[in-house]
Simulated assay, not measured.
Amino acid sequence: MTRTYSEFANESIKVLLNTLADESSAPELYRTTMVKLGMALGDVILAQISHEQCNVYLACTVEDADFLAKGMLLRLEKQLPNVAFACFWNQRFSPFEVEDITVAPILRKYQEPSSAVNYLIIVKSIISGACVVKTNLINLIQNIKPENIFIVAPVIYHKAEEKLRNAFEQSTYDKFRFFYFAKDNQRTSKGEVIPGIGGSVYERLGFQGQDDKNRHTPEIVKSRRKLISV
């Protein structure tokens, strides 16, 4: 097992990553750590983009909305004039029980309207097989034509970047930039990255599995929906 760190991972970030990897970390600590990592990733992104007249679109999955994505939004919305948001509920499974083949159809989504998008940011707690990111990105770019696509996570699997690029035409993957704190090169027989984020993010965040998180509506979605409807 080998973990490598990116240029963005200082000692404080490594402590947060170790908290995620520690299977004894309680759900409340895990959630707080995800928010902090989201804020740190937000700072990384802000250093990469032009702030003037900049339209940013942030997309996440339902389990990350109130934690990792919330942390990023806290940072982005303090500095940027226009940040739109989308949240996806995905059902990830392996057809015919073939672990190497996974799909992640969208059960429902919350998607805010936006005009021209300079930066589309896809944030996820961990990117391993990349099927969820691929599915949601395909859906987004049907309506959004971003100039740049940032794929962001605290931890990624070392083959994830190549696998995701291979799923798109060159005109799309040329827009990709990956931002992460740690890259791991080992997975279990069930496909779980080691040390990754310490297991299944659903249970670590306090959900009772995939079905439970897909019944959940994040607070961030509720509050933003109210603002739009006013």
Rank of each mutant, 00 (worst) to 15 (best):
M1E: 08
M1T: 10
T2C: 05
R3Q: 12
Y5W: 11
S6N: 08
N10P: 04
N10Q: 04
K14N: 06
V15W: 07
L20Y: 08
A21S: 13
S24I: 08
S25K: 02
A26K: 14
L29W: 00
Y30L: 00
T32V: 01
T33Y: 05
M34S: 10
L37R: 04
G38W: 01
V44A: 05
I45P: 11
L46S: 11
L46Y: 13
A47I: 01
I49Y: 06
C54D: 04
C54N: 14
V56W: 06
Y57A: 08
Y57H: 15
T61I: 14
T61F: 11
D64Q: 12
A65V: 04
A65T: 12
F67A: 12
L68S: 07
M72L: 15
M72D: 01
M72Y: 04
L73E: 07
R75D: 10
R75I: 14
E77H: 02
L80S: 04
N82I: 13
A84H: 10
A86F: 05
C87S: 11
Q91V: 02
R92Q: 10
F93T: 07
E97F: 12
E97L: 12
E99T: 10
D100T: 15
D100E: 15
T102P: 03
T102M: 15
A104N: 07
P105L: 13
R108D: 05
K109S: 14
K109D: 06
Y110L: 07
Q111E: 14
Q111M: 14
Q111S: 11
E112V: 08
V117I: 15
Y119I: 02
L120Y: 09
I121F: 12
K124E: 13
K124H: 12
I126Y: 08
A130Y: 13
C131Y: 13
V133K: 03
V133W: 04
V133G: 01
N136A: 09
L137C: 07
I138P: 00
I141D: 02
Q142V: 02
Q142N: 12
I144M: 10
K145L: 14
K145C: 11
N148S: 09
N148T: 03
N148I: 00
I151E: 05
I151R: 07
V152S: 11
V155S: 06
I156Q: 06
Y157K: 06
Y157S: 02
A160S: 15
A167S: 15
F168W: 11
F168H: 09
T172C: 12
D174E: 13
R177C: 01
F181L: 03
A182Q: 13
A182R: 11
K183S: 13
K183I: 15
D184T: 09
Q186P: 00
G191A: 03
V193N: 01
I194L: 14
P195V: 01
P195I: 01
I197R: 05
G198D: 00
G199T: 09
S200Q: 10
Y202L: 03
R204H: 08
L205R: 06
Q208W: 06
Q208R: 14
Q210Y: 00
K213M: 12
N214T: 10
R215C: 09
R215M: 10
R215F: 04
H216G: 01
T217H: 02
I220R: 09
I220K: 09
V221I: 15
L227S: 09
L227N: 08
S229L: 13
